[in-house]
């Protein structure tokens, strides 16, 4: 009983706020508790997000006259990204929350700021124009980071095939004529099935692509015309 009272009082004291003018002294017990509380709050609110489909309209997208990428996670969390200025490796897209996604020919190459990030990838997939109704085989490498901050490479055997018929899809009130490409990648541990809808300009208008074990598949849509 005596110990219980002590611990209650002890917890109350730790609720006091500490203060400092330098990060060098940010190692006190309170700072730790604050960080833990912050993390707990973040985790509790991770399911709460603003649906960018409410904030953005077709008119606004057209008026902006810049490429816009819409990304939706399996949790429902979504956002729009715009190209990172300058000439980079692949095309890096920057979201309002500070996360980036890098694509190459519309294919997910890497991400940052998304937690279990795809740290990088490479593939010998031929250009879109050279893919036809026949299965084409190639290799894909996906690179992740382990919990111990080591590089984890996954090599996959892939095959891709173009659907023979053109079809029309609607993205945010605009119709696009596209061809569907089905990509299947496997190794001993995982099987991945990605789908791409590519228009005549070789822009991936819509896709469902594997990101990581934690985030699963992400949906991408190019919103600009």
């Amino acid at each position: 009983m005596e110990m219980k009272t002590f611990l209650i009082n002890f917890a109350l004291i730790l609720i006091l706020t500490s203060c400092t003018n330098t990060p060098e002294r940010e190692t006190g017990e309170i700072k730790t508790l604050q960080l833990l509380k912050q993390a707990f709050d973040q985790r509790n609110h991770s399911e709460i997000f603003v649906d960018s489909r409410i904030l953005l309209s077709r008119e606004k997208i057209d008026a902006a006259n810049i490429p816009v990428l819409f990304v939706k996670l399996k949790s429902g969390q979504n956002g729009t990204l715009t190209p990172y200025p300058g000439q980079g490796i692949g095309q890096t897209w920057l979201g309002a929350d500070g996360a980036t996604i890098t694509t190459e020919r519309g294919i997910l190459k890497a991400s940052r700021g998304m937690g279990d990030d795809l740290m990088g990838s490479s593939s010998s997939m031929p250009p879109w124009a050279k893919i036809n109704e026949n299965l084409i085989r190639y290799e894909r490498k996906l690179i992740y980071m382990t919990g111990n901050n080591k590089i984890l490479k996954r090599s996959l055997e892939c095959k891709i095939q173009r659907n023979s018929l053109k079809k029309v899809i609607e993205i945010w009130d605009v119709k696009f004529s596209v061809r569907k490409f089905d990509e299947n990648c496997t190794n001993k541990q995982i099987k991945i099935k990605n789908t791409y809808f590519v228009d005549d300009r070789e822009i991936v208008r819509r896709s469902s692509q594997f990101h990581s074990d934690t985030l699963g598949y992400i949906l991408t849509e190019r919103l600009d015309r």
């Binding site: 980036t100 998304m114 937690g115």
Partner: peptide, 21 residues
Amino acid sequence: INPGRPPMLGGKELAPVPMRL
């Protein structure tokens, strides 16, 4: 617990600056 099994794999933070070509 396991040092190699963090509560959130990778951690959440702002993305770094992408390099230029």
